[in-house]
Structures are given as C-alpha cells and as structure tokens.
Simulated assay, not measured.
Amino acid sequence: MNVCVTSWPTTNKARSCSTVQEIALFPIPELVAFPGHEVPLHVFEPRYRKMVTDSVAAERPIGVCHTRKQIRAAPQLKTTEEALSTNQATYLPYEIFSAGPCRILETLDDGRIHAAIEMQARYRVISEVQTLPYKIVRAERLIDEDAEQEYPALQREINDSLLALIGEEHQQLRKILAANSWQEQSSSVFSYRIFQYLKFDADIMQQLLECNSIEARLHLVGGLLSGTPVH
C-alpha cells in the first residue's frame, strides 16, 4: 500500500453519456483508473498512436484497463527508431475499466504523443467491435446500486485512518484531508477520489473498481487500511 502526496489532476466537469458506447481500449499492466481522475499518457507504439488520433477525431472515448495476462511478448528492440515503429507486448484486458474523452497535449517530431484521458465513468465490456490494429469494444456504463446514498461514518473512518497512517510528515496531504471541501464531498465522489492519494496492489485496485456499490467499496478500503485480508 502506498500513500501518494501528489496526484493526477481532476475535473468536476460532467458530460452526459449513453448507457452503451463504443470505446477504444488501452491495456496497461498495473494501471487501474477511477472516475474523476485524469490519466496522462506517453504514447509511442504505432497502434496506440493511431488509436489516440482516431479516437480524438471521432470523439470516441478511450478506456485504460489493467491486464489479466500477457498474450504476446514484446520483440527485442535495439534502437528508439525500432521501438517507435514496432508494436510491443499484447495483453488480455480486464472487462471492467474506466473511460472518458482523450485530448492530445503534444505530438513530438518523432511521432510520440503526450495525451490525457478524463475518466468519467466505469464500464463493462459487452462485445468486441474491432481487434486490429487496436481494440474497440461495446461497453455498458456501470452505476453503483446505491449511487444516491451517503455514508458519512465510513468516510470519517477512512479519513481518520489515512491521517493516522501518514503521520505528521506529509503536511500538504493533511491539509487536503482536513479541508471542508474534502470532508463535505459526497460518498460517491469520495469513494473514487480517495485513490488519488491511496494506492494498493493493482489486483486489489481492480477489485475496488469492480465493487458494485459505494458502501462495499468504502468497507473494502476501510478493511485494507485496518489490515483486514482481502478475499
């Protein structure tokens, strides 16, 4: 478990989403993103550079997902030029992921792209639309079954545990966690934003992402902070 003092930037903007959408998938081992996070990308593989440019042009969301296993190993490359012209390892992605609109921040002279994805919602894969050169899926948006419920006691318990964990050395983070704007946010927002500052093993983060209720997610976080084993 890691406590992170710095975090990806977030946004409070909301856009309407249909229940089912076509989404381009970017499998990245060990990376689990949550709604409300903005994920920075440094894209160099040809297929994913095409995915980013195609998706931005088509206004298609991009999903970033943790991976179950490697399907094909990366080739042995000796130069930067080879890396920029060759696709790397191929992975089997998890079916549940976060996604949102992508924007290109910079395209370098050698073709590499700096981009950012504004994660807006969780999705589950329904079917595959395209496999090559990159994966596009039809996916349904997931909404917590208790999306309108509030759990202030659970939020306070997690916040107090995190403050105790970080001690006095991280004053910047202590100020954030003590601020009214942090303590007064809804349980739904809190259950995702907490992962700006709290990181577990990627498989555990995936389990947290897949929780179908705010209460279950907060109970799991509280248990992890108290040392309760995850099953």
Rank of each mutant, 00 (worst) to 15 (best):
Cys4Asp: 12
Cys4Lys: 13
Thr6Phe: 15
Trp8His: 13
Trp8Val: 03
Pro9Arg: 11
Asn12Val: 00
Lys13Gly: 10
Lys13Met: 12
Thr19Cys: 00
Val20Tyr: 12
Leu25Pro: 02
Phe26Trp: 12
Ile28Leu: 15
Pro29Cys: 11
Val32Ala: 07
Phe34Leu: 03
His37Asn: 08
Pro40Phe: 10
Leu41Tyr: 05
His42Asn: 11
Val43Glu: 04
Val43Ile: 11
Val43Ser: 00
Glu45Val: 04
Thr53Glu: 13
Asp54Ser: 07
Arg60Tyr: 11
Pro61Met: 03
Ile62Gln: 02
Gly63Glu: 01
Cys65Leu: 12
His66Ser: 10
His66Asn: 15
Thr67Glu: 10
Lys69Ile: 00
Ala73Gln: 10
Ala74Asn: 06
Pro75Glu: 08
Thr79Tyr: 11
Glu82Asn: 06
Ala83Lys: 14
Asn87Ala: 04
Leu92Val: 00
Leu92Asp: 12
Glu95Lys: 08
Glu95Thr: 08
Ile96His: 05
Phe97Tyr: 06
Ser98Pro: 04
Ala99Val: 02
Cys102Arg: 02
Cys102Ile: 04
Arg103Thr: 10
Arg103Tyr: 08
Ile104Gln: 06
Leu105Lys: 01
Leu108Cys: 09
Gly111Cys: 06
Arg112Gly: 02
Arg112Phe: 02
His114Ala: 10
Ala116Asn: 11
Ala116Gln: 13
Ile117Met: 01
Ile117Ser: 01
Met119Cys: 08
Tyr123Lys: 00
Arg124Ala: 11
Ile126Asn: 15
Val129Met: 12
Gln130Lys: 12
Gln130Arg: 14
Thr131Leu: 13
Val137Ile: 11
Arg138Glu: 15
Arg138Asn: 15
Ala139Ile: 04
Ile143Lys: 14
Asp144Ser: 11
Asp144Tyr: 15
Asp144Thr: 06
Asp144Cys: 12
Asp146Pro: 03
Ala147Thr: 06
Glu150Met: 06
Glu150Asp: 09
Tyr151Glu: 02
Pro152Glu: 04
Pro152Tyr: 01
Pro152Met: 04
Pro152Ala: 00
Glu157Gly: 03
Glu157Asp: 10
Ile158Thr: 02
Ala164Gly: 14
Ala164Ile: 04
Ala164Ser: 15
Gln172Met: 14
Leu173Thr: 05
Ala179Ser: 15
Ser181Gly: 00
Trp182His: 02
Trp182Ile: 01
Trp182Asn: 05
Gln183Ser: 09
Ser186Gly: 12
Ser187Gln: 05
Val189Ser: 12
Ser191Lys: 04
Tyr192Thr: 07
Phe195Met: 10
Leu198Ile: 00
Lys199Gly: 09
Ile204Leu: 06
Gln206Pro: 05
Gln207Phe: 07
Gln207Asn: 09
Leu208Cys: 02
Leu208Pro: 03
Leu209Phe: 04
Asn212Met: 12
Ser213Tyr: 06
Ser213Arg: 04
Ser213Pro: 05
Ile214Ser: 05
Glu215Gly: 03
His219Gln: 14
Leu220Asn: 03
Gly222Lys: 08
Gly223Gln: 03
Leu224Glu: 02
Leu225Cys: 07
Gly227Arg: 00
Gly227Asp: 07
Thr228Phe: 04
Thr228Arg: 09
Pro229Tyr: 05
Val230Gln: 10
